[in-house]
Write a protein that binds this DNA or RNA. Structure first.
Lengths: 235, 235
DNA sequence: GCAAAAGTGTTGGGCCTACACCCATGC
DNA sequence: GCATGGGTGTAGGCCCAACACTTTTGC
């Protein structure tokens, strides 16, 4: 099909994407990937990685590209979060930001590269975030809320852990995300009864003292099958 | 503050909002408000109400304005749904649509006005929708999914009913949304134990045969208090 | 051998499910 | 008086929460 007419609106709004990228490790807890802004406004401030959408790319492609350009990290999970569009959120001109929620796995949770696009990129513990540019703190709050509620009925939590992990890591993760102690025996009983974890014949490498734990692996194939059959969990 | 610089991106993308507006009544079930397009593309097709965002208004203001202009109905509940932005979703040029999920209360669920902006506006039963313009069927599917999952842990369901309603209306609503029979006694026990419904000393007006039921009213104040104290329900 | 973390079962109570008969009203 | 829909209670099973001691490892 070929269309002659054009859209008649004159509109002076730009579209950007921003990503709230979570990482986790057992000793430091939940952390977030930020970049330092090279240019005004908010030059030198920390901000979410992101940028303008190119005319020919999808929104997901835009986030993926920006993340690669600005931080170099490998993204493991990505979903759309919310669109922030109040007229005054950017002092230059109106910019609507489609925000995304992303997770980087622990093993890939290494030093981000400082690239040409951002003067710096670094992980921050979510409890010790610096002041953020624009309305990015609001976006971060929305993302944390999403993460906290989502882990209760969806296995996104496993995206935060290494592919193989000792059971206690999972327990610590949930205990920290849900912000309450988790009973070890009850939690293990419940998770194992879901049948979505494979128990491996390997033990965790030692870190400090204590008995090393057996390793487990999330079985996505099995999980997807269960979901197809109407399965639903709730923690 | 006064800024001299401008945004450097040249971007040829427009921003629109679209609304999936739900209505409900006990006899016809769940319905959806559509407009008939006056202009190409998809002239004459049914589509979601919506339109371009003006430079100075927020996204919510844009949806509210468009709904008023195109349908004249009074919106009772509004939340952002999802942002659809694939490059080819509009044949004219790239348009990113921030979609909204809206509810019109049964009592206000009257004939929409045909206004100057749309050649026609009408309610359709969700099970008998016409072919929709653009990717609007995808948006509708997303909205229905959201509604179905949301009623299970959030009192949006009450927004679909009249402010005063007989208990059986609530039961029918849930049974239709959850797409399974609901045990009358168990359902009532559960809902009443939440303490978020006021039992009124009024009986429902007669419609046809049968004993008239007592009327109930959702107590939002009480609900908000409970939520503040960490309350959460699950059906 | 001691410090640190992993592994492991049982019991009581509460909640959820299943289930059927009588009541109020209109015609 | 009959048809239609409203209103009501109980019993069994399942799931969830509470709870503590033993084992393995490093040092």
């Amino acid at each position: 099909m070929f269309y002659l007419y054009r859209v008649k609106t004159t509109q002076n709004i730009k579209i950007a994407v921003d990503a709230v990228v979570f990482g986790y490790d057992t000793s430091n807890g939940l952390s977030l990937l930020l970049i330092r802004r090279k240019f005004d406004p908010y030059q030198g401030s920390w901000a979410l990685p992101g940028g303008f959408v190119l005319d020919a790319e999808s929104l997901e492609e835009a986030v993926t590209r920006e993340l690669k350009e600005e931080t170099g990290v490998h993204i493991n999970y990505l979903e759309q979060l919310y669109t922030f569009g109040s007229p005054k959120r950017d002092p230059r001109q109106r910019i609507v930001s489609v925000s995304y929620f992303a997770i980087v796995r622990e093993s890939a949770h290494q030093e981000p590269e400082a690239t040409t696009d951002a003067s710096d990129a670094a992980w921050f513990n979510v409890t010790e975030l610096p002041n953020l540019a624009f309305d990015h703190q609001t976006i971060v709050n929305t993302a944390i809320e999403r993460l906290r509620s989502k882990v209760r009925y969806n296995p996104v939590g496993f995206e935060l852990l290494d592919t193989k992990f000792p059971f206690s890591d999972l327990e610590k993760l949930y205990s920290s995300l849900l912000d309450r102690p988790v009973d070890r025996r009850n939690f293990k009983k419940k998770i194992m009864s879901l049948g979505i974890l494979d128990e491996l014949n390997e033990k965790a490498p030692h870190k400090g003292a204590g008995r090393p734990g057996r390793l487990y692996r999330f079985n996505r194939k099995r999980y997807d099958e269960l979901v197809r059959d109407g399965f639903h969990f709730e923690l």
